[in-house]
Amino acid sequence: MAPTKVVLLSCGAFNPPTIMHLRMFEIARDHLQRMEYHKVIGGVISPVHDEYGKKDLVSSTHRCAMLRHALRSSDWIRLSSWECQQESWSRTRVVLAYHQNQINAVLNDNLDSPNKKQRREELHWVPDDVKYHSEGSVRVKLLCGADLLESFGTPGLWSEEDIDTIVGQHGLVVITREGTNPYKFIYESDLLTKYQNNITIVTEWISNEVSSTKIRRALRRSESVKYLLEEPVIDYIMKEGLYGTKDNKYLLYPEYNQSQSFFLTPSPSDVNMESPSPTSHPTNGIDYGDSSMQCNFSGGESYASKPKNGPVTYIRVERVEDPQDSDRFSNEENTRRSGMGYPGQAVQIIATAAGENKVHKQGLSRPACLL
């Protein structure tokens, strides 16, 4: 018997679309085709209407744009914006029925029909296999996570009529998530048990608890979301200032706003801190350029600024070793170090134009740290 041709349809907010939204399609296709009962010929993503009313939901214009960017890397998953273009929110059962009916209409059209070319252009989400090559029926199945399956048990959230239509007429492909047991949930539901042959459970062995909620939180806090979203999606979010990135106090993406600083507190007024990791290492530890400079001393790092008049001033974070550590230093060296201060003390080093270094404690009694 020939395998059933399947189009996987995923509904949701996609706010923003993550790598796991796309990963679900890949996992599901692998599993279904490995079982040899189904042949997956396409995937469709249908973002929810703006009136769905979910917290922090950005406009469908932005969500569709992010999905287009995210789907650049896929040659078989496509965006359907039909749901977003309706006057109000559509139930999942209605969304599934619309896409199934449109696929059926394309399959049943006469190839010489003058309207078929226009319909193909309008229905850009329809897989090419359906438009040009397919023979026989194609079934639209709902692709979802185990959390959606378990939401069927939430009182008042789903009507029995909707569940009966979704599972009985279309079917589910459910991707497992950490801490869920879809088999147990199906067993405890008489309605789902009735249609259990239409429910395919796909185990995700490479678990990754990436969620749009966590990503929005990270973006609000200026935390990196690299490798959690497709790069073009990140670029779009930053460009449009979505999810609070426009008002972020601290910046992790300097290419979008060069005026903001990475430092949480200002540097001391008499010190110009260029970088905690110097890129050059002068042989004598001193650089007498015309502008602010930085030097590297053995055993610690220092930061320097050259005023218009007077000596170059270096603030050095110096770790003073324990003078009792005779295994590491000679007695002479230990004596010299013990004269500088106690272990962990911050000291100030003044370098004159003649190249002479002088150590000044100047009451700096707290442990060494970046001032």
Results as ranks from 00 to 15, higher is better:
residue 181 N to G: 00
residue 70 A to T: 01
residue 106 V to L: 14
residue 82 W to T: 12
residue 136 G to C: 08
residue 136 G to E: 02
residue 148 L to E: 01
residue 162 D to Q: 08
residue 130 V to F: 13
residue 159 S to C: 03
residue 123 L to F: 11
residue 127 P to W: 13
residue 103 I to M: 13
residue 160 E to L: 05
residue 154 T to Q: 01
residue 189 S to E: 06
residue 154 T to M: 00
residue 189 S to F: 06
residue 101 N to E: 14
residue 164 D to I: 07
residue 101 N to I: 07
residue 172 L to S: 01
residue 74 S to I: 08
residue 184 K to G: 10
residue 183 Y to G: 02
residue 81 S to D: 15
residue 147 D to K: 02
residue 173 V to H: 06
residue 73 S to F: 05
residue 150 E to F: 06
residue 108 N to I: 03
residue 161 E to D: 06
residue 158 W to I: 07
residue 167 V to A: 09
residue 115 N to P: 00
residue 125 W to N: 07
residue 85 Q to H: 11
residue 150 E to R: 05
residue 167 V to R: 11
residue 151 S to T: 06
residue 73 S to M: 08
residue 147 D to T: 00
residue 79 L to H: 10
residue 128 D to L: 13
residue 84 C to T: 13
residue 81 S to I: 14
residue 81 S to Q: 12
residue 149 L to V: 01
residue 122 E to C: 13
residue 152 F to V: 04
residue 186 I to W: 09
residue 92 T to S: 14
residue 148 L to F: 01
residue 99 H to K: 10
residue 177 R to I: 02
residue 165 T to H: 07
residue 88 S to F: 09
residue 133 H to G: 02
residue 118 Q to R: 13
residue 181 N to K: 06
residue 184 K to V: 05
residue 172 L to F: 10
residue 182 P to A: 04
residue 70 A to Q: 00
residue 73 S to P: 01
residue 180 T to C: 02
residue 130 V to M: 10
residue 145 G to K: 03
residue 125 W to K: 09
residue 138 V to C: 13
residue 157 L to S: 00
residue 90 S to F: 00
residue 95 V to P: 07
residue 87 E to V: 05
residue 136 G to S: 06
residue 134 S to L: 13
residue 150 E to A: 11
residue 90 S to C: 11
residue 132 Y to I: 04
residue 71 L to E: 01
residue 184 K to A: 15
